[in-house]
Design a protein around this nucleic acid. Structure first.
Lengths: 190, 190, 190, 190
DNA sequence: CATGAATGAGATTTCATTCAT
DNA sequence: GATGAATGAAATCTCATTCAT
């Protein structure tokens, strides 16, 4: 049973660093200290292993999203929480979130693949969350009256960019979370 | 000669959509309407073809970066120009810039690969451009006195996110360029 | 103990329907409701299991052959009995006799394999039985003076064909036994 | 191009002797004097190669069936011709017809497989041919008034048995064709 | 320039079998 | 008796690349 977890951990690491197609089952097996057929004993195939990882990653991700506080004193706190959540997640589990946010596009060709579906769900969720936030913030005169759709897109892009950047360890500055939150605050809050 | 361009165009499209490892030479040949050996007549191999595309993409990219106006009335205009440039580039050549910004990480393992080098160069360039901008803006009291390094990182992440988002055609809103520029302006400019 | 029989029954069914090479030990185990190692507890291996089945099938088959009545009023009755026996056997145990008569030829390559030996023995037995029958029938003027060897071959082919046809459930007409016996009678008996 | 034929010929031989599952692509390649990937260059896979062989075998087979003379002086000649045709075919192309008549039952599980379809077609064709023959022969008082369906079944079984027997080289007597034809004639013709 | 045929190396997967419990 | 986990060996298949023409 420890070996199964080994496989999962190794695969997560390798997939996120080399992409799905760039990682071989032999490589996974070797680095996990098992033989190749064991992968096929625990999973139906390379694809199934990948799917398992993605599903698990998204499961944790959505759990965290769902447990964001719904009651806040200001609307901006909601955005602040969301940004902080992503910074935290990418610190805790850089490989998983990196995979989740940017699985090698090959997988995205098949719209019915778990990957595509989860990504779509994520996009929907974040879109809805941010839209509501912005609309309420504008209505209550807390925010500038920005264009909602476009601002949602840009905040999404910002989060996406941060996750990729940090998932790839291209940037490891400690203070970025704070800076980012203040940056957005100055822009949105009156 | 038209065939060579066909190969390049097809390969660019496929690499950006399926990743380097997820694209086969046969697929490129078929979609380009040629036979596989022709690829080897024009290029030394799959890797060489990829490198050619990346180099070309970055060449154009750097040319555009280099031709950004150096004399501007405000410091913010510099940032505005940079953001606009990326929006324009991703509209003109979505596949190329997408590739340039996010080549399947497998290629990045080899630090001496063209890909890694160009990406590094790009990061340096943008870093320097943005740092200078911010420092001067702060010095001249045009900008809030933000933390420079962190803000550079976040602007880089924002651009990266935008390019990925639009390169993957996940978002095609027309007004985002403007919204993004205003968003950053409100945040930076006093 | 019931499990051992389960294994045997399932294997018999699967081998006869999919051939030896087309059947996996996992499939046998699953359909028999046991785990793979149990097969190895009861048998030395897949080959041994197969051999066991074949030997058992042939044992019953030869017992039936041996108990054919030796004293008959006419010589044709002997042939009649033989044909009827095969019709009965294939009705009672379609899988076993089908296997016995047509084990995937792969097994026949090895002339020393149980399979080859039993089949050879069967051919000898039937050949001898039919030859004697025909010769006596001809000598006693009961039969037309047909070519013995060739007629033996054709009767053997007929029985083989019937067993295969019915073993595969391609034909399930009730009256075929009778029709076949009459067909041969008209042809042989003066 | 000669190599492609080599592959086909070798595969035909091996499949008929060892069954589909008992034959490996490596074995085919080696005996055909080519490398394994060449099989995959010319065919989509092992299954496709097999299908190609079956289709080709049946093509020739049906061509011969179709060119059986339709005008005959007696009805029995029709049956005579059919039996002779099978003896001739099995002499000309023992492997192909053996395969066609008895492809390892594994393939027959899938009712939509070419194999199953062709076999069904063959059964239909022979059934129709023999039925008509018998009915006309009985109507014109040339034949005994046998049970048509059952007799068709038995003649089919006889042909099947002969093809298997001779395809497996279990019997190579020269005179069997004649003997078989006379055997059936005595039984059917008044 | 261009291609049909071919291949070496290796990837994914299967499978009979065994081991530890 | 019985099983979950594991494996060595091998089978099917893929793919970048080359050769002969």
């Amino acid at each position: 049973m420890k070996k199964k977890q080994n496989i999962i951990d190794t695969a997560t690491k390798l997939f996120s660093r080399q992409g799905f197609d760039g990682t071989t089952t032999l490589q996974i097996a070797r680095e996990a200290g098992v033989t190749e057929p064991l992968i096929y004993y625990h999973f139906e195939g390379k694809d199934d292993l990948f799917t398992h990882i993605i599903e698990n990653g998204f499961k944790t991700y959505f759990e965290r999203l769902e447990s964001l506080p719904t009651e806040t004193t200001t609307h901006y706190e909601k955005i602040e929480n969301l940004v902080a959540l992503h910074f935290k997640f990418v610190r805790d589990r850089p490989d998983e979130i990196y995979l989740a946010f940017s699985t090698c596009p090959a997988k995205l060709k098949d719209k019915s693949h778990v990957c595509s579906k989860k990504l779509e769900k994520q996009r929907q969720w974040l879109g809805a969350y941010l839209s509501t936030c912005l609309e309420n913030g504008i209505a209550s005169n807390e925010f500038h009256s920005v264009q909602v759709k476009e601002t949602v897109g840009l905040l999404y892009a910002l989060i996406l960019g941060i996750v990729r950047q940090r998932g790839l360890h291209l940037n490891t500055l400690k203070g970025m979370s704070r800076t980012t939150i203040e940056f957005c605050r100055r822009s949105l809050v009156k």
